[in-house]
Design a protein around this nucleic acid. Structure first.
Ligand code: FES
Ligand code: FES
Lengths: 144, 144
DNA sequence: TTTAATTCGGATAAATTTATCCTTTATTAA
DNA sequence: TTAATAAAGGATAAATTTATCCGAATTAAA
């Protein structure tokens, strides 16, 4: 569904959000450990998220990553997915035609559009905040 | 969503089904042209579909690929997707945890399960036959 | 002002997916 | 029986994704 990079990106963002709720700023090192992801690769993904204004980064000692309380509501999963995987998942044809086009649809078009918009709606309506709180309460997990 | 191999596989299967409805057996060459896919790669995928008893192949002159009328109803998209991409899309965790597990769910679990089962239902209920007929009537396209 | 901690950025490597090429096998038709 | 045609199978190459490494830039604290 999502690329590895995107999976790591979402997990990292959720972890950062959770820690920011506690007023803690976290390092790549800690993030990679807590979400069980390759550290250097995760660092690259965090750079992308930073450039896209999804998370904030601070250099130097005591530096790390954080996200403002307000942004946790504003940032929906769709923004993260778009920043990392692009919008192919939102607009692409399920059978790989150049573009999805209702005027010259592929055989799966009608049915695929349904599934795809279901996914899109889910991603657009899910905020980092709600994902982070479930984590904080101990109901959900970022690694196993 | 699906791998390139899977996209080609579905397009090929739909094309073969459509031609089989007309009693025609088709070659890899023709298939690759008609669905606009790399021929040698498509041949590999057709081998997989054949091994999984999704389509039938006949060697030698006048040989090629075909699919029985009955199988067009029996074979759902889910079978093709499973044969090529495996079942990760049906059972995997959306955030990439080792397995999806409701007892120790990732933060996205509840929402993701919804989307995933929506997709699964769609694939399990869509037969090759219905996709092929839309094509035959000229309502849908396999290339553009 | 120096040192250490941290992100940033570029280069490179490993793994996987996508794609090609060529030989073998089966089968039809001349 | 031979020649031609088409799928099967194996080896390899190209492209993309995933992952690692290292030096540069930034900054807090000693
Ligand atoms: S044309 Fe294929 S999904 Fe719309
Ligand atoms: S645990 Fe992640 S989707 Fe079920």
């Amino acid at each position: 569904m999502f690329s590895k990079a995107c999976e790591y990106g979402i997990r990292a963002a959720v972890y950062i959000a959770m820690q920011s709720l506690d007023g803690r700023r976290v390092s790549v090192n800690e993030i990679a450990e807590e979400i069980d992801s390759p550290m250097a690769f995760t660092a690259k993904i965090l750079q992308q998220l930073t450039k896209n204004n999804i998370i904030d980064s601070v250099k130097g000692p005591t530096g790390g990553f954080e996200i403002e309380r307000e942004a946790m509501d504003t940032v929906k999963l769709s923004k993260i997915v778009k920043a990392i995987d692009g919008d192919k998942i939102y607009v692409g044809c399920g059978l790989g035609l150049k573009e999805c086009n209702a005027d010259k649809p592929c055989p799966l078009h009608d049915k695929f559009v349904d599934v795809r918009s279901n996914l899109r709606t889910m991603l657009q309506s899910t905020s980092l905040y709600e994902l982070a709180t479930g984590l904080e309460v101990g109901l959900t997990y970022l690694k196993r």
